[in-house]
């Protein structure tokens, strides 16, 4: 591994203006991502997990400069990319690609598959028309589509096949970093593993680095090298995948793991499982954001927010991170 990380995010914040209710209410701010920092080394797969609405998508889009962050720093291969205009970002757009959750929404319904896959090449002026078509066919075959599919339209494909199209498009520019935002969440379980296998194969054959987002821990377990757990716009625990699953230290992580369905026993409802919904990011709780749902919450938790601490291998944001067994 080289020393400069591919992606290094520091104190990243993203707030959305939200219009208040009532005629005289002013604007208020929704902090979707709050002071998030992480680094991603070459060839590594970092998984970002957390309940829906905790800010994973926002974080991914801010890091990829698709929604400019409110504050903080994003460095790509060592150079700062926040504040760059569309033109200066264009070289970066070649190296970083996104895969979206909804394979029904991420493909333009009016373009045939061949054109969809070749579009990034066209945008970057790579090759002539024939070369681009050839390349698109090769890409399609790599992701398990047929050459005959090139003139068909997205609506003629199943969800899994559409996700393959999206993946072919994402690797067309030979990126080094792929940000996959819940790429399998919308798919049937049987299809999920096929797509995960495809992503894994591509990672190996093309030495890809992944920022992989999921709300489903099971998907992440055997796919990621490292996992970051998000809660209400912040990272609350990050560790190597094995460590995190074997010895989680944040009560939220433990609850997430406990909530995993175990084969043969169905969904567990034992103590330690999450109850209720996460609080609204518009009106976050005082102190530790997790305290209203935390079984270990004490007075201290309501008053002060624990920082993300620990050695670079395992960091936790909890006042009582050293208590409570696994």
């Amino acid at each position: 591994m080289s020393d400069t990380p591919i992606l290094e995010v520091r104190d990243l914040c993203k707030r959305f203006p939200v219009r208040g209710k009532g005629p005289f209410a002013g604007k208020s701010w929704l902090a979707a991502v709050n002071a998030v920092s992480f680094r991603l080394d070459k060839g590594e797969t970092l998984a970002l997990v957390g309940e829906s609405g905790c800010g994973k998508t926002t974080l991914a889009r801010a890091a990829a400069m698709l929604q400019p962050p409110t504050s903080g720093s994003v460095r790509f291969e060592g150079s700062e990319i926040t504040g760059l205009g569309n033109r200066s970002l264009k070289p970066l757009r070649r190296r970083v690609q996104m895969i979206f959750q909804d394979p029904y929404g991420s493909l333009n319904p009016r373009l045939p598959v061949g054109a969809i896959i070749a579009e990034p090449l066209l945008v970057h002026g790579l090759g002539d028309k024939a070369e681009r078509r050839q390349k698109a066919v090769r890409l399609a075959e790599q992701v398990g589509l047929k050459a005959g599919d090139m003139s068909r339209y997205p609506h003629q494909f199943s969800g899994g096949q559409r996700q393959r199209i999206a993946i072919a498009r994402a690797i067309a520019l030979q990126p080094c970093l792929v940000i996959a935002d819940e790429p399998v969440s919308a798919l049937d379980v049987s299809i999920q593993s096929q797509i995960l296998n495809l992503l894994r194969d591509l990672r190996d054959s093309r030495r890809l680095t992944y920022l992989f987002i999921s709300h489903d821990l099971a998907v992440v377990r055997h796919f990621a090298d490292r996992v970051a757990v998000m809660y209400l716009g912040r990272i609350v625990e990050t560790a190597a995948a094995e460590t995190l699953f074997d010895a989680p230290r944040h009560p939220y992580t433990r609850a997430l793991i406990a909530a995993q369905p175990v084969i043969g026993r169905g969904k567990r409802t034992a103590a330690g499982c999450l109850s209720g919904d996460p609080p609204s990011p518009l009106d976050p709780p005082s102190g530790c954001p997790f305290h209203p749902r935390c079984p270990l919450a004490a007075a201290l938790c309501r008053e002060s927010r624990p920082e993300l601490e620990g050695d670079s291998g395992h960091q936790v944001a909890c006042h009582f991170k050293n208590e409570g067994g696994t």
Partner: peptide, 10 residues
């Protein structure tokens, strides 16, 4: 309109 519609923000 503004007077009738409580939702509008001026």
């Amino acid at each position: 309109y503004a007077w009738l519609d409580p939702r509008i923000s001026y």
